[in-house]
Design a protein around this nucleic acid. Sequence first.
RNA 1: GCCCCUGUAGCUUAAUGGAUAGAGUGCUGGGCUUCGGACCCAGUGAUGAGGGUUCGAUUCCUUCCAGGGGCACCA
Length: 526
Amino acid sequence: MIRQDLIKLIKEAISEANLGSHEVGIDRPEDKIHGDYSTGVALKLAKMFKMAPMKIAENLQPRILRLKPDLFSKIEIAEPGFINFFISPSYLQNRVKEILKEKEKFGEFKLGRGQKVNIEFVSANPTGQLHIGNGRSAFAGDSLANVLEKAGFQVVREYFINDAKNSKQIMEFSKTALGRGETYLNDYVKSKIDGMAGKKNLDEGEAGYLLAQEVQKDTKEFLEKKLKIRFNKWVSEEEKIYRKNRIKKILDWFKKNNLVYEKDGALWLKTSQFGDEKDWVVIRETGEPTYLLSDIAYHKDKFDGGFNRVIDIWGADHQAHVSKMKAVAKMLGFRGNLDILVLQLVTLRGGEKMSKRVGNIITLQDLVDEIGLDVARWFYLQKSLNTHTEIDLDLAKEQSEKNPVFYAQYAHARICSILSKFGKSKIQNPKSKILKLLNHPSELSLIKQLIRFQEIIEDTANDYQIQRLPQYATDLATSFHQFYQDCRVISEDKKLTQARLSLVLAAKIVLGNTLSLMGISSPEKM
RNA sequence: GCCCCUGUAGCUUAAUGGAUAGAGUGCUGGGCUUCGGACCCAGUGAUGAGGGUUCGAUUCCUUCCAGGGGCACCA
């Protein structure tokens, strides 16, 4: 990958110049006159060595160029001490060959090689249909998992089902199931209860549990069939945590290690000794375990699973739970990273919080039916996860004609149209000599955009900022549309036609890859 | 009261401490005898307020203002 190559070269040059070793940051300047890539490392070194930054940049510039002259068309120095890299056309032209060779594997790399990631998302309470808030977790989690896989991680996608019979939630759900209460009751739940006729004589925990199973069956089908999101692992709290005595085991371990104490008739966990602000109750006065305890028992399994990263995607209402689990991870001696993503709220235009407990809900299904899966996924992904987002259903639908998703898809359809017009079978494998013909600025900037795909994967796998994907898809589509405008692909010039077809094919591969990471279709026609 | 997230063009928003803050939408004006005009090009227009750190701050620190979320022996 070019960015990693650059970092390596710059580090070599720094050490050659006896300036020690230093972290090197690479930027992608917005203005083309500052090159394709740049570094401000001379400015940093200047401070350390108390030297003029321009002097350092002037020292490094020829060294870097000498290390790999073919990579650059030039390297410039700019005030107050930037080193700007201009990538040579021949390097870029050869990347087209690389993309065509690697096809859908292009962009995969070894960042995560040999590393395992567990990512848990959605995990909605099994007391009703998914709502528009769950959509954020579903789409963000799915895309993030896709990116991590692309980055070489072995990824386990997990869904936790909150269905313990002795939980208050399922108890309440039982009352509703048996007609003794109205918690969680709505038309959908009512239809599920009606379907359970004949099982009226169940005890309270059992009735809610069975009803939850019915709901969960629908949710699973909705996720897999309609949203096309797959999970590797479905963990039922009732079956995996309670039936297998996980609670008792973890409790015994806490007791043995003196991590719990009794107070006011309840049992408290010493989370404050591990960085949390206070201790929390794990066993109630009534003798029942709290949600925290069962969540600990659940996470213990994840922590013991040999994962380098455990990622939890939670709604904003779980924010207070973050510091607890972080403390617990330390307590249990988890050596990997526990990354908890707290998603900010998705609300309606009116501002009412989406909840199964109030009426007037909009389900995720309704939303997807209304605006389409592709538009919905793009809509959710394009905003930073920690921004509170407001959905105006009418507006989302109204704007769908102008949604950027169509802009990106249109580029893909155009590509397919060109390829089929020429005849796919007549496209030859590109030779370097032919690819040298790709010299138009629009051709070269399209290639630059294509190889950026690897950087997108790397950055997103590290910082989880998935809004980068739709952003990139838009940038890539723009580069393609510009190229299309400036460079006629199929022409009398047979060699140039072949060269440009190769580039078009490469664009199809990368754009298709990007859309598929987002779970968005790549139409051949629109 | 304490903790978390957010405040950027009219609207929706982007930006690992980098150079002239980037898009979409809106509005104004241009562009196809030829591969899809759902396109391209140009113009318009923004960092809530004040301090601080830095060669450089949308980004880090701090005070304030505004919105949202959380602070349970709920999940």
